[in-house]
């Protein structure tokens, strides 16, 4: 096993992408993810890759669209306002059945907001992919190691479902340093997809990457195809972690950085004799319905702990189907939660 090295979340994402075989990156600067393009600009040329600083996030995502159409592993990264601008492009990618990886290091919003950590783009990610009937397959790592690993895996998942995959982090995960066991670099996979354009055709049939279908029935078929892939993802890609007491009286629901806070809060609650359990969705879409359904029969209530005014909580409520009350403990706008606060609020609600 390789040694672990200290790395920031941003660098771990960028290194995970390169290790996975990503050779094309287009992006536009925005804090708190600027170290990702910096790392890419420095290291992609070393492996024969290309970094392009785009003139806007509109341009970034459309450059990604073009590179993805050639079958390449391609990525962009941004933070909340930039991801808003990318929605149209994401919709086109989904409609044209193209894979890509998009990293969102979420910051406080709405508007220009601030560069504090936030989780207020949960809906933008899981209901996003712009207009139309689509969504983004979304994964939410909670450590620098997981940021590295999930970025590495995201490219394969995107190819498998021919859809954009979003890695959802936040300003804190982006900047903090933790030990990482780095993945070995693998070669970029051959671009032998039956839909990829470009290269030398050498007599093969011409190919078209397109999302325009004026025949409504054909358009519906495309939507059914996308929906079927999402159903397949519900079968195969649902991931979650549980932490804490097996005989818990209360469940905390949290993902990403909030889940880290909850882990400490659960340890602290245990010291005070309160048995709590964390359910941490790792895949946000597809959402892990199962553990919530199960635990909703066994506990008095579930608390959704998130850095937003209540977004994750809606998926939790959908999963729980009214079997137990679901409350919100959260901050928004860049304000961080502490374990002490989660402990206090949990005791109040219990």
């Amino acid at each position: 096993m390789t040694q672990r090295v200290m790395m920031t979340g941003n660098n771990a994402v960028a290194e995970g992408a390169i290790a996975s075989g990503c050779r094309y990156f287009c992006g536009y600067p925005i804090t708190p993810q600027n170290d990702i393009p910096k790392y890419m600009a420095e290291h992609l040329p070393e492996v024969g890759g290309v970094f392009v600083q785009a003139e806007s996030e509109l341009a970034s995502i459309n450059m990604v669209y073009g590179a993805a159409a050639t079958g390449a592993y391609v990525m962009t990264s941004s933070s909340s306002p930039g991801i808003s601008l990318m929605q149209e492009g994401l919709s086109y990618m989904l409609g044209s059945e193209l894979p890509c990886v998009v990293v969102n290091m979420v910051r406080g919003g709405p508007g220009l907001g601030n560069i504090g950590p936030a989780q207020s783009d949960y809906w933008l990610a899981t209901r996003g992919a712009g207009h139309g009937d689509g969504r983004c397959l979304t994964f939410a790592p909670d450590s620098v190691q997981e940021l590295h690993d999930w970025t590495f895996e995201a490219f394969g998942i995107a190819q498998k479902y021919r859809a954009p995959v979003m890695i959802l982090g936040d300003a804190l995960l982006a900047g903090m340093s933790e030990p990482v066991r780095l993945r070995e670099h693998r070669e970029p996979p051959p671009r032998d997809q039956e839909w990829a354009v470009g290269g030398l055709r050498e007599g093969r049939q011409r190919r078209i990457v397109n999302s325009l279908w004026t025949d409504v029935e054909v358009m519906e078929e495309l939507n059914q195809r996308i929906a079927a892939r999402f159903s397949q993802a519900r079968e195969n890609e649902v991931r979650w972690e549980e932490y804490g007491a097996d005989d818990a009286e209360i469940v905390l629901a949290a993902y990403g950085i909030s889940a880290r806070v909850c882990k400490t809060a659960i340890d602290d609650l245990a010291e005070d004799g309160i048995k709590a359990r964390l359910i941490r969705p790792i895949s946000l879409f597809p959402f892990p319905v199962e553990p919530f359904r199960e635990w909703s029969e066994r506990v008095s209530r579930i608390i959704s702990v998130e850095l937003s005014m209540g977004q994750l909580i809606e998926d939790v409520r959908l999963a729980v189907e009214g079997r137990c009350p679901v409350d919100l403990v959260g901050h928004s706008g860049g304000v961080m939660l502490t374990p002490d606060e989660v402990v206090c609020r949990t005791k109040e609600l219990l």
Partner: peptide, 10 residues
């Protein structure tokens, strides 16, 4: 063991 919360009040 696990680091847990990277942010601490105290």
């Amino acid at each position: 063991g696990e680091v847990g919360s990277p942010i601490v009040g105290s």
